[in-house]
Nucleic acid binder design. Structure first.
Length: 211
DNA sequence: GACCAGGCACATC
DNA sequence: GATGTGCATGGT
């Protein structure tokens, strides 16, 4: 397994090169983007983030004090805007009340307990929590997503219905726990999905073959 | 017009 | 524990 996953990584990296993730100007922008991109294409998230920036709302204090209704209107292009406004506010309440909106305070907490805290916030699930840990706080945590699932399934490395934690352990148990490596690996899987997946194209080389 | 996108919570069985 | 459903925009 270790060798398979290492091989996949090497081939992706030599084909696509470094991905320079996460595409954001600050750790806080990563956190916001991680929530906005839930089941949503990144181009739509970019529009929502551009709206926030245009109005100078992209800071913990500004978002914390914004009403749900106003926030929903601003992030509309990202879809699910009512529920995402709530989720963002839930996260902001947590971030301000527990860490005073201070990234470095949050980053100084040990990774395991911080992950648990994040998962207790309504609207933050495993992928969003891990994206925040890896891409905003630079913790060596592997992010699993829909593309990861498809690629591993296609290559027979997992069974259908494998859960998040199980897939994540494939990566974290045997591979080196390195932030830069996990950063690049997840980004490359997404790149692969965006370029070649899949459902859209008649002969997807990534999705499981349907009999 | 159908299908999809860098999930998650909640209801129901 | 597994399965189903709502949430919603914008691109292909």
């Amino acid at each position: 397994m270790n060798r398979n996953l290492s091989l996949i990584y090497r081939r992706l990296y030599s084909y696509f090169g470094p991905q320079h993730w996460w595409p954001a100007q600050s750790p806080f922008e990563v956190m916001v983007g991680a929530i906005l991109t839930q089941n949503t294409s990144w181009v739509n998230v970019e529009k929502a983030i551009a709206n926030l920036k245009k109005r100078n709302f992209l800071s913990p204090e500004m978002l914390y004090n914004l009403s749900n209704a106003k926030l929903a209107k601003i992030i509309k292009p990202a879809g699910y805007y009512n529920i995402k406004a709530k989720r963002l506010k839930n996260f902001l309440n947590f971030f301000i009340e527990h860490y005073q909106g201070d990234i470095s305070k949050m980053a100084s907490k040990d990774t395991e307990s911080l992950r648990k805290e994040l998962l207790e916030v309504n609207g933050i699930g495993p992928e969003t929590a891990d994206s925040i840990l890896l891409y905003a706080l630079k913790k060596p945590v592997f992010v699993v997503d829909a593309y990861t699932n498809r690629v591993l399934l296609r290559h027979g490395l997992i069974k259908e219905g494998a859960g998040y934690d199980k897939i994540q352990k494939l990566f974290t148990r045997r591979l080196k726990k390195n932030t830069k490596f996990f950063n690049e690996y997840h980004a490359l899987l997404v790149k692969l999905g965006k370029e070649f997946c899949l459902k859209k194209k008649p002969r997807c080389s990534i999705c499981p073959v349907k009999s």
